[in-house]
Amino acid sequence: RRRVRAILPYTKVPDTDEISFLKGDMFIVHNELEDGWMWVTNLRTDEQGLIVEDLVEEVG
């Protein structure tokens, strides 16, 4: 499975499927959606939700 790491922190918009995260958080990518969004699991918090790919980098 594809893994990505947050390069910046992010605070979710209330009442959306987004998740908040810290710089350095690792995610497993489940689905890549339109307009650069990804459905992921945050490995630190075990939370699932949407993040935008501009805020993460690939992990080898």
Rank of each mutant, 00 (worst) to 15 (best):
W37E: 04
R2D: 05
Y10L: 02
F27V: 01
I51E: 00
M38Q: 03
D25E: 03
W37K: 11
I19R: 00
V4S: 02
V29E: 01
E32V: 12
I28C: 08
D15Y: 12
R1N: 13
E58S: 11
R1D: 12
T41E: 08
G36M: 05
V59P: 06
T11V: 13
G36F: 04
R2F: 07
G49M: 01
R3Q: 12
K23A: 14
V40D: 00
R44V: 04
E32I: 10
L8D: 08
L55D: 05
D46F: 15
V59Q: 07
V29G: 00
E57H: 07
V40M: 00
T16F: 02
R2M: 06
H30N: 07
D15A: 10
D17K: 13
V4I: 07
I19P: 00
T11H: 10
V59N: 06
W37M: 10
E58P: 12
P14I: 09
W39Y: 10
Q48Y: 12
I7L: 12
V59E: 08
E53C: 08
E58G: 08
G49S: 00
D35Y: 11
H30C: 09
R2V: 07
G60T: 14
R5G: 03
E32A: 10
Q48K: 12
V52H: 15
E57G: 05
A6L: 01
Q48D: 11
L22I: 12
D54V: 11
D25H: 01
L55C: 08
E53R: 15
P9W: 06
L8T: 10
D46Y: 14
M38A: 04
E32G: 06
I51W: 01
L55Y: 15
G24T: 03
E53A: 14
E57F: 06
T45L: 03
R3C: 11
R3P: 06
E53S: 15
A6Y: 02
V13Y: 09
K12I: 03
Y10W: 07
N31P: 01
R44Y: 05
Q48W: 09
D54P: 07
V59A: 12
L55K: 11
N31T: 14
D35N: 15
T16Q: 03
I51A: 05
G36T: 04
S20M: 02
M26R: 06
M38D: 01
V52Q: 15
E47A: 07
E47T: 06
G60D: 14
I28F: 08
T45Q: 02
I28W: 10
E32R: 11
R44I: 04
R2A: 06
W39L: 08
Q48F: 11
T11D: 13
W39E: 05
T45A: 03
E47P: 00
G60F: 14
E58N: 12
E53K: 15
E47F: 04
K23P: 10
D35W: 11
W39G: 01
G36H: 08
V56S: 04
R3S: 09
D25V: 02
D54L: 12
P14D: 10
F21P: 00
M38H: 03
L8N: 10
T41P: 00
L33Y: 12
Q48S: 12
A6D: 00
F21H: 02
T41N: 04
E53I: 14
A6I: 02
N42M: 10
K12F: 03
D54Y: 12
L22D: 11
I19L: 15
E34L: 12
M38E: 01
E32T: 13
K12P: 08
V4L: 10
K23E: 13
L43G: 03
L50I: 12
V4Q: 03
L33S: 09
T16I: 03
L33M: 11
Y10N: 04
D46P: 01
Q48A: 11
T45G: 03
H30L: 15
D15F: 13
I51N: 00
D17Q: 15
V56W: 03
N42W: 02
D35K: 13
V13P: 05
E57D: 06
N31D: 15
D17W: 11
R2P: 07
N31Q: 14
V13K: 15
Y10G: 02
G60S: 15
R2S: 06
T16N: 04
K23T: 11
E34D: 12
G60M: 13
V4A: 05
D25F: 02
V29P: 01
R44M: 07
T45R: 02
E57Q: 09
M26K: 06
I7N: 06
E32K: 12
I51L: 09
F21A: 03
D54K: 14
E47D: 10
R3H: 13
W37A: 07
G24E: 05
L55F: 15
L50S: 08
I28E: 13
T11G: 06
D17F: 13
T16H: 03
I7S: 06
E57Y: 07
G60H: 13
K12L: 03
W37Q: 08
E58W: 12
I7H: 06
P9T: 13
W37I: 07
E53P: 10
V13I: 14
Y10A: 03
V52K: 15
R3G: 05
D17G: 10
V56H: 01
G36R: 09
D46V: 10
T16C: 04
I19V: 08
V56N: 01
M38G: 01
S20Q: 03
W37C: 07
L8G: 14
N31F: 15
V40E: 00
I51F: 01
G49C: 01
L50Y: 09
D54S: 13
G36C: 05
G24L: 04
E18S: 05
V13C: 10
D25G: 01
L55Q: 10
P9F: 07
V56R: 01
N42L: 13
V13M: 15
T11S: 11
E18V: 05
D15T: 07
D35C: 10
D54C: 08
I19C: 04
M26H: 11
L50W: 11
L8A: 14
V59R: 05
Y10C: 03
K12D: 02
G24R: 03
D25R: 00
V40G: 04
W39R: 06
Y10E: 00
D35V: 07
L55P: 01
P14Q: 10
G24A: 05
E32S: 10
K12Q: 07
L22Y: 09
L43M: 12
R5L: 08
W37P: 02
T16E: 02
D54T: 15
G36I: 03
M26W: 10
R2Y: 07
N42P: 01
I28N: 08
V13G: 09
V52Y: 15
E57P: 00
D25A: 02
G49E: 01
L22K: 11
R1A: 12
L43N: 05
V4H: 03
G49I: 01
F21Q: 01
M26D: 07
Y10K: 04
L55T: 05
D35T: 09
M26N: 09
G24C: 08
R3L: 15
I7D: 02
P9R: 08
S20Y: 02
K23F: 08
V29H: 02
I51K: 00
I28Q: 07
F21S: 01
E18L: 05
D54E: 12
F21W: 03
I19Y: 01
W37V: 07
P9E: 12
G36L: 04
L33I: 10
V40R: 00
V40T: 04
F21K: 01
V56F: 04
R3A: 07
F21I: 04
A6N: 00
I7P: 03
H30T: 06
W37T: 09
T45M: 03
P9S: 13
K23V: 13
M38C: 04
H30S: 06
F21E: 00
T16D: 02
E57V: 11
S20C: 04
E18M: 07
L22P: 02
D15K: 09
L55A: 11
Y10T: 02
D17T: 10
V13S: 14
G49Y: 01
E18C: 05
I28D: 12
D46G: 13
L8H: 12
W37R: 10
E47G: 04
P9L: 05
D46T: 12
M26Q: 09
E57T: 09
V4G: 02
E34I: 10
E34C: 09
R1M: 15
L43V: 10
T11A: 09
E58M: 08
K12S: 09
D25Q: 01
K23Q: 12
V59S: 07
T41I: 08
L50N: 04
R1K: 15
D25L: 03
E58F: 09
V13N: 14
I7M: 09
D17E: 13
L55I: 07
F27Y: 00
F21T: 02
G49P: 00
L43K: 04
D46K: 14
W39F: 11
